[in-house]
Design a protein around this nucleic acid. Structure first.
Length: 112
DNA sequence: CTTATGACTTTCA
DNA sequence: CTGAAAGCCATAA
């Protein structure tokens, strides 16, 4: 490591790490949308990129990232197919999140 | 460098 | 409400 970045600099290697860090900071009982996460990262239009980061969690190397706290626009579950949506809904419910017609109230659980 | 994919979002019919 | 299309971002090949 010659002249590499400062050791005390968290320096995220990729956009992924930034997403993980942010999602990990989401308090229990609270939910955020892809667009919100992307916006907080500085990319209001990077909702897709955020989806890519979470999708990587599917892989066996996943860390303790509460991906189930990330929903689509309007607090709606974007995941489709597989046991994704079911698992997410189940976990959120276990955290005290109330569902409204299959959607979550961002007014109550939104990041504010 | 270009191409293709995707756990997104918004708009139009 | 449902369905389709376009736009934008990041990564992998």
């Amino acid at each position: 490591m010659s002249g590499r970045i400062g050791a005390s600099t968290p320096e995220p290697s990729s956009f992924f790490e930034r997403v993980y860090e942010l999602v990990e900071q989401i308090p229990r009982g609270r939910v955020a949308t892809y667009g919100q996460v992307a916006a907080l990262l500085g990319v209001p239009r990077g909702a897709r990129a955020v989806g890519w980061a979470l999708r990587a969690l599917n892989r066996p190397r996943a860390r303790t990232v509460p991906w189930h706290r990330v929903l689509g626009a309007g607090g709606r579950i974007s995941l489709r197919g597989g046991s994704g949506p079911t698992e997410q809904r189940r976990r959120l419910r276990a955290e005290g999140v109330r569902f409204r017609k299959g959607c979550v109230d961002l007014k109550e659980h939104g990041l504010l």
